[in-house]
Design a binder for these strands. Structure first.
Length: 497
DNA sequence: GGACGGTGAAACTTCAGGTTGCCTC
DNA sequence: GAAGTTTCACCGTCC
């Protein structure tokens, strides 16, 4: 085997490898096991590189992705100035895009990343450096699967530029070197296991099969599952039959399917749930929550209901510091919750608190907290906030559909309001202004603070004042939408034309 | 003498990621 | 379990 020697310059093997890659005029990915590590690693690398004019421009772009740059944005921009970057799920999607594009163009030369990058689109580099092969899991630090290792190593070598690529895994000792090569270089990838047996997946499938009228009795249901990879793997048809029977019983109990003369039929709500593609368990929790609700619900109550679902996981972590504060909040808002608080000694309590923390985070967003604040207070990065908000929007939509079916008309308007507030991250008072195209959270707030609070106010204010508040383009757009045309700073009613 | 800043060790905290629905001028 | 971050004591420097 051919060996290469890499100069030890900095005492940090990753940085030394990076410097060696620079000498070769190549690019590299570095895979690490946490988001914080990805950021730190990119920072360490950037300290050894020089600024370039091209990167300076990219850094500016990255800073301006969000309204006001967060700590994370600044940190990323500082790295990018030197041609290194970090990449993980906490980044804003636009920033991720910029980094990927600029890496392809060769402006960004090093990316330190969590496995986001390994799973993502085809983006190879000459060199892949795998720094961490262990990751925190249920049983403390666990070795990552061989499959995942290969996935990362497989990013090395760009067919259009290089004849070969190098995947390097870092061992801290001779002993570790042997273990690693045995496990990952010579070892067999793990078998792939069917995920169908997981109850949430199973419930969803059973319901959708019945709903689509693919199967209408137990025998046909069994025949379907017998053909699956899951059945092929486990072979135990008796166990399979027991599990599926259990699922069917749940769906009947929840009122999502009916059994008549040994034939299954999805109910109206069952069909809709199958279409919405939410876990029937979640749907049942929603229905229970809706029944528990009175005439009015609060935003926090709704948010908490949707956060307390499997779909919303992983939830925000509750740290030791949070614990007391969350307990206080749970007491304060006790009457608002649509999913009851378990006792402190029950196993679900921890998850319940996590869902409360997640709901509180989104509530702050709806109260116009900015992303930097959310990062500080909730340890949630912009990318994660966005992902959670999208999920929440989908679940709120599903909830509104169930409210309609359950004839809870009074709640529909409140759920829809919650959706809009969440989508834009605004207080209720801004809602009338969001009807305008080109007006989001920031501009609506500006308008409101200048006493322009609805369509009527927009109509009556003169253009030059509006221009001062919004800038010319936006002001023009808004005025057009109330049927006025602006000609040389003069307004004319368009219906005079 | 006190404010300030840099340094390093100890204490503390936290730990990857992904898909789904629907609408609209 | 380990890396990253925060905290805090300690020391030197400057005014």
């Amino acid at each position: 085997m051919k060996t290469q020697k890499v100069d030890q310059v900095t005492g940090n093997p990753v940085v030394d490898l990076v410097l060696n890659t620079v000498e070769k005029k190549k690019q590299a990915f570095i895979f690490v096991n946490t988001k914080a590590s990805a950021e730190k690693c990119a920072e360490d690398i950037s300290e050894e590189l020089d600024k370039t004019p091209a990167c300076e421009l990219i850094a500016e772009k990255i800073l301006n992705v969000l309204g006001s740059p967060t700590k994370q944005c600044k940190r990323l921009a500082n790295c990018v100035r030197k041609g290194s970057a970090f990449h993980h799920s906490g980044l804003h999607s636009k920033q991720r895009e910029i980094i990927e594009d600029e890496f392809r163009l060769g402006n960004i030369r090093f990316i330190s990343a969590t496995p986001t990058l390994a799973a993502g689109l085809s983006m190879p580099a000459f060199r892949v450096i795998i720094r961490d092969v262990q990751r925190y899991g249920r049983r403390g630090m666990e070795f990552i699967p061989v499959l995942e290792f290969l996935q990362m190593a497989g990013r090395a070598g760009r067919p259009e530029f290089d004849d070969f690529g190098e995947a390097i895994v870092i061992a801290k000792s001779e002993g570790e070197k042997e273990n690693l090569s045995e496990k990952y270089l010579l070892g067999e990838p793990e078998d792939i296991y069917s995920k169908l047996a997981v109850e949430p997946v199973l419930r969803t499938y059973v319901l959708s099969l019945i709903s689509a009228a693919e199967v209408n009795n137990f025998e046909k249901l069994m025949n379907f599952f017998k053909e699956t990879f899951w059945a092929f793997q486990f072979k135990d048809m008796n166990q399979l039959s027991v599990t599926i029977k259990k699922m069917v019983k749940l769906l009947v109990d929840w009122g999502f399917i009916q059994e008549l003369d040994n034939k299954f039929r999805a109910t109206y709500s069952g069909k809709r749930i199958a279409e919405l593609y939410i876990d029937p368990y979640t749907a049942n929790e929603f229905v229970k929550g809706l029944k528990r609700s009175s005439e009015t619900v609060t935003l926090l109550g709704l948010l908490h209901l949707i956060c307390n679902t499997l779909e919303m996981r992983p939830l925000l972590n509750v740290t030791t510091k949070d614990f007391e504060k969350l307990q206080e909040k749970s007491l304060l808002h006790e009457k608002e919750f649509l999913s009851p608080e378990p006792s402190e000694f029950e196993s679900e309590y921890e998850d319940w608190l996590k869902s409360l923390k997640t709901a509180l985070m989104m509530h702050e967003w709806c109260e116009e907290a900015d992303e930097d604040f959310l990062m500080k207070e909730y340890n949630v990065r912009p990318g994660e906030t966005r992902a959670k908000i999208n999920l929440a929007d989908w679940l709120l939509y599903a909830l509104s559909e169930l409210a309609r079916i359950e004839q809870k008309q009074n709640l529909l308007a409140q759920i829809n309001k919650a959706r809009t507030r969440l989508k834009y991250g605004v207080k209720e008072e801004l809602l009338p202004l969001l009807k305008f195209k080109g007006i989001g959270r920031a501009r609506a707030r500006k308008l409101f603070n200048n006493k322009i609070r609805d369509v009527k106010d927009v109509k009556s204010i003169d253009f030059s004042t509006l221009k001062k508040i919004l800038g010319e383009k936006s002001a023009e757009g808004v005025k057009m939408q109330v049927g006025e045309k602006i000609v040389g700073n003069q307004r004319q009613l368009s219906d005079t034309f």
